[in-house]
């Protein structure tokens, strides 16, 4: 059976372009903004959307996403409220994924979290501090709820790791650099090698994230990968004009989408 994630990648491919996957932090600038932001991103051309659940100790994140999470936590954001808010929008939009760290999920309860995420209309989970080898029991419970747990691949990952993730669902999240999230001035030259390695071993779409900030970078990455993930640059743009968050998000995504679509027509 084809999942909503599979269909989103399939459709992008049918249009001859990479899928665009923006990231936003739930509760930033505030939780009330979430439904409007999701709608604006989808309207601007997002194919899937990652929603970050803030964590106090986000060790895979750079300064921009750290600050967004701290700000959301300082306002007292709760996981239950995020689930509630997501539930209100998930029916009318593109597939949604949660990105969070393992401790909030552990504390909520693996089974309860998977069930409540599913009920809220979430399609998959990305957990940067849950490497594949530690993920078995969560994957088991997530799969029972038709949730994908997205495997990550880093430039340092071994072929043995690529073999293991052949059994994964959804897509492969390729981490473009050794490092944390945050805008970078250029695309690491290792990205095409990383994407090619994954494609040669794993029969899933590969989306590349970490550091992609501009339409031009998105275009470069879109030439070698099935998806382009953009987080810090978008959140930074929202942070600069929090009162115009929706308009900023819409414009940001539309520019990225145009860059991805243009290579398609050129190619």
């Amino acid at each position: 059976m084809m999942s909503a994630i599979d269909s989103a990648f399939r459709q992008a491919r049918a249009e001859g372009r990479a899928a665009l996957i923006p990231y936003i932090t739930a509760g930033f600038p505030d939780l009330a903004a979430l439904p409007g932001l999701v709608a604006a991103l989808a309207e601007g051309g997002a194919d899937l959307i990652e929603i970050g659940i803030p964590f106090s100790d986000p060790l895979a994140d750079g300064p921009v996403l750290q600050k967004a999470a701290s700000a959301a936590l300082a306002r007292g954001i709760r996981i239950r409220d995020i689930l509630q808010s997501v539930k209100g929008v998930s029916g009318q939009t593109v597939p949604l994924l949660f990105l969070t760290y393992i401790n909030p999920i552990l504390r909520y309860g693996f089974q309860d979290f998977c069930r409540d995420s599913q009920v809220a209309g979430i399609q998959g989970l990305i957990i940067p501090d849950l490497p594949w080898r530690e993920g078995q029991s969560l994957r088991h419970m997530a799969h029972a709820q038709k949730l994908a747990v997205i495997p990550l691949v880093a430039p340092t990952s071994t072929d043995a790791h690529l073999m293991e993730i052949r059994r994964a669902r959804g897509f492969v999240y390729g981490v473009s650099v050794t490092g944390v999230t945050g805008a970078r001035t250029r695309v690491d030259h290792g990205v095409s090698l990383l994407a090619a390695r994954v494609k040669s071993q794993v029969n899933l779409p590969v989306a590349i994230g970490f550091g992609i900030a501009t339409p031009d970078q998105a275009r470069q990455v879109g030439q070698v990968a099935d998806g382009v993930i953009v987080g810090s640059a978008l959140v930074d743009a929202i942070a600069a004009q929090p009162d115009k968050a929706e308009a900023v998000a819409f414009r940001f995504v539309r520019n990225m989408k145009e860059a991805l679509t243009n290579i398609a027509t050129k190619a």
């Binding site: 895979a60 490497p131 071994t158 790791h161």
Partner: peptide, 20 residues
Amino acid sequence: RQGRFGPFGGQYVPETLIPA
């Protein structure tokens, strides 16, 4: 071998660090 002390321990770090 998995770095477990009973239920505790493990390696909850980004995939990047696993080979290291």
